[in-house]
Simulated scan of single mutants.
Amino acid sequence: MGRIPSLKNFNAFPHAEDHLLKKTYSGAIVTIFGLIIMITLFVHELKFYLTTYTVHQMSVDLKRGETLPIHINMSFPSLPCEVLSVDAIDMSGKHEVDLHTNIWKLRLDKYGHIIGTEYLNDLVEKEHGTHDHDHDHEHKDDEQKKQEHTFNEDADKMVKSVKKAMENGEGCRVYGVLDVQRVAGNFHISVHGLNIFVAEKIFDGSSHVNVSHVIHDLSFGPKYPGLHNPLDDTTRILHDTSGTFKYYIKIVPTEYRYLSKQVLPTNQFSVTEYFVPKRATDRSSWPAVYFLYDLSPITVTIKEERRNFLHFITRLCAVLGGTFAMTGMLDRWMYRLIESVTKSKTRSVLR
């Protein structure tokens, strides 16, 4: 029985002494301060748990036989809609015969306000060339040769209409979607759709074609959270010069998997820009804006994930328990400090 009192030393739950059960103003202040810290840390941990994060994975692209959507939204402040054409060429060297187009052209005044619309569905099959309006064209019949040297009434009306639009500072906005095959290719916006002699009559030479443009939006599929398309809000304005813009685009097939397991197939891309100024000696090529794209063989999968609930509980317990322990230590130190100061004052008074 003599050893039984020594067992008290192993008691993990000692009873507090009477003086430690006193409620003091300093303890109330520390308690309020601790509660504020606990609530703040709880809200922070809850936000951290509810916030999703993304995980990136890469794999070989196994998609076949699908189309590539190209979303276009561009403005040409120096070219009327009547002279602009959209051409899309794939790796085979021809326009897709069954190319599905959903392109609109909006006429703009010199202030950028819309004054008219036109639906563009005139993409036709052409041989893959430079689209430079070369003077030497093969496979022309007698009727085409005759039209090269004489203008009918429709051509004259078009020339007058375009010149008037250019004098008024009219521009054009091109927007819509091109659905092309998932192979390397390019699409470009230019005056290549015009007859060479009509174009010469309108611009008095290719060096006077100003392809200044603003890319409001260019994407290859729907947008997902966090996606940034590098060509959005790109402005390229030419002053007293002319030339061809070329954008070399590398497309990376992408899948975005939401937390709800919904999958969004899309594409992201990188781009390199190159400008070719127009030379006075080069009369065969006409300025244009080219977008030359190629597809990566690698697919990027982006998955939304949320942190484990047990991990959240563990962090919460650690934060709240640690705060409670620290405020308890602070309360004991303040109590002892106040008590020692009070006792020293009492002794000095008694003396």
Rank of each mutant, 00 (worst) to 15 (best):
F13C: 09
H15N: 08
L21N: 14
K22G: 08
T24H: 01
S26T: 10
T31I: 11
L35E: 11
L35M: 13
M38E: 11
K47C: 08
K47I: 00
T54L: 10
D61Q: 00
G65S: 08
M74R: 06
E82N: 09
V83R: 00
L84V: 06
D87G: 08
I89K: 08
M91D: 15
K94I: 13
K94V: 13
K94G: 10
T101Q: 05
R107C: 12
E118V: 02
V124S: 12
E127A: 05
H131M: 11
H131N: 14
D134R: 01
H137D: 09
K140W: 08
D141C: 06
H149L: 14
D154P: 03
D156W: 07
V159Y: 04
K164W: 09
E167G: 15
N168P: 01
E170W: 05
V177F: 04
N186F: 15
N195L: 01
F220W: 01
Y224A: 11
P225S: 02
N229S: 04
T235G: 00
H239M: 10
H239I: 10
T241A: 06
Y247V: 00
K250F: 11
V252Y: 09
T254F: 07
Q268I: 14
S270R: 11
V276T: 05
S285R: 05
T299I: 14
I302Q: 09
R315P: 05
L316D: 02
A325V: 12
Y335P: 08
R347H: 04
L350E: 15
L350P: 13
